[in-house]
Structure formats: C-alpha cells, structure tokens
C-alpha cells in the first residue's frame, strides 16, 4: 500500500493541477455558457460519493457479520469521504441552479434525495463520534441502510417529475465534452482512493495508539 501511495497521490495532484486547463478547452454549452463548466466538478463528485457509499456499505456488512477492525476502518473512512464528496456536490449544485433556475435551491426530487443521502452519512459520522463504546456496529447499520436506500432514492427520480438534468445526459455527450468529463471523473476517483488510503491509515494509527495506552495503563 505504502509503495503505491506516493506515486498515486502525486499523479492525482498533477491531474487536479491540469484539470482547469482541460476543462477550459472544452466547448461552451450553448444555453448555459461558462456556468455549464460546473458540470465537470459537480457530476464527478456525485460519482465519487456513490462509490464511497458502495465501499462503506460493503465494508459495514463485512464488519457487522465478521467483526473485522480493518473493514470497520474502511467503512469509517468511506463514510466520512462520502460526506465530503456529497458536500462538494451540494455546494456546486446550487451555484449552477442559481443561473439555470434563478434560485439556489428548489425542492426537486433529485435535490431532496441528494440532501437526504448526505444527512444519512453525516448521521453515521455523528454516531461514531458520540455513540460511545460499540458505536462501530451502530455506524455499520447506518452504512448498510444507507446503501440499501440509495438505489431506491435514485429510482424515485424517475418516478417523480424532476427538473434536474437527467442521468442520461452523460452517455450522449459529444466527444469534445466527454473527454474532459471522463478526465475529471478519473481524477475524482483517484482522489477518492488517495483520501481513503490516508484515512484508513490514520484509523490504523489511532487504533495502535489506543492499544499502547491500554498496555501502558495495565
């Protein structure tokens, strides 16, 4: 892990440094002008959040049924990272909405559901912080339920009439926009991997420190 981390972090950093130039070269979308460029940061952050949710849910399941501290650390890290990427999506979304719809926020199905997912994973972080001993299992339950609800809430968008651009926009992008878009998605996924490794390592050190304290007290 440690050997991969340095080069991976450096590469991700380079991709992010280059990303403004890549995005700047993409053509303007006809109706939205420069605001449409938010898309290159907004959509990948949601992609990253959904990936983090999937990792968190899977690790939570393993921890709940096998009691693996390693899986617990991964679930903890992925849960926190899901909150971070969700926050990024929730900040960039209203910026676009202000221009496209004239308001920062509307109670549209997709926005409501995005906020809901964010709240679910924040509650997972809160229970870890304030739940006391045994809260790792509680947080695992939140992770599993969060994962179980995600496809539902995603589907609900298709039931409701929504004014948010549909998910079908992505496969129909022209090549001049698709290339920078997938570049950004890759950069975000790498960022997710880097953050996950960092956070898991931090958790590992915290656990080691706690063990040392316990050994010292005995």
């Amino acid at each position: 892990m440690r050997k991969v981390f340095g080069p991976l972090a450096a590469f991700t950093g380079l991709m992010f440094v280059a990303s403004p130039f890549v995005v700047a070269r993409a053509p303007f979308e006809s109706s939205m002008g420069i605001v449409s460029k938010i898309f290159y940061f907004h959509v990948p952050s949601w992609f990253a959040m959904f990936t983090a949710i999937a990792i968190c849910g899977a690790a939570s399941l393993i921890h709940l049924f096998r009691t693996s501290p390693r899986a617990d650390r991964i679930a903890e890290a992925a849960g926190e990272i899901a909150v971070v990427f969700g926050l990024m999506g929730l900040v960039t979304g209203p910026m676009w909405g202000r221009k496209a719809w004239g308001v920062w926020w509307i109670w549209d199905a997709k926005l409501t559901i995005a906020l809901l997912l964010e709240m679910t994973f924040i509650s997972g972080v809160l229970v870890r912080k304030y739940g006391g001993p045994g809260s790792d299992k509680l947080a695992a339950a939140v992770g599993i339920f969060g994962l179980a609800v995600t496809p539902f809430v995603y589907e609900a968008v298709n039931i409701w009439r929504t004014i948010h651009p549909l998910t079908s926009v992505v496969p129909t992008l022209p090549a001049t926009m698709a290339v920078p878009f997938w570049y950004c998605v890759t950069a975000y996924m790498l960022l997710l991997a880097v953050l996950l490794m960092l956070r898991v390592n931090l958790g590992k050190r915290q656990a080691a420190l706690d063990e040392l304290y316990l050994a010292y007290e005995d």
Partner: peptide, 25 residues
C-alpha cells in the same frame, strides 16, 4: 435502531438523528 441504541451513549439524541434521514423516503 432503538434496540441497538440501548447500549449507546446519548441515545435519546441519536435515535432521531439516525432514524429520520433513512425514514424520510
């Protein structure tokens, strides 16, 4: 959630915090 929170600290606050986001749909 209420059953698993029985052993947790600050369970009164945590129950609605955990329950509502999942139950809102």
């Amino acid at each position: 959630f209420a059953a698993m929170l029985v052993r947790a600290r600050s369970r009164d606050v945590l129950l609605p915090i955990l329950l509502y986001p999942i139950i809102i749909p």
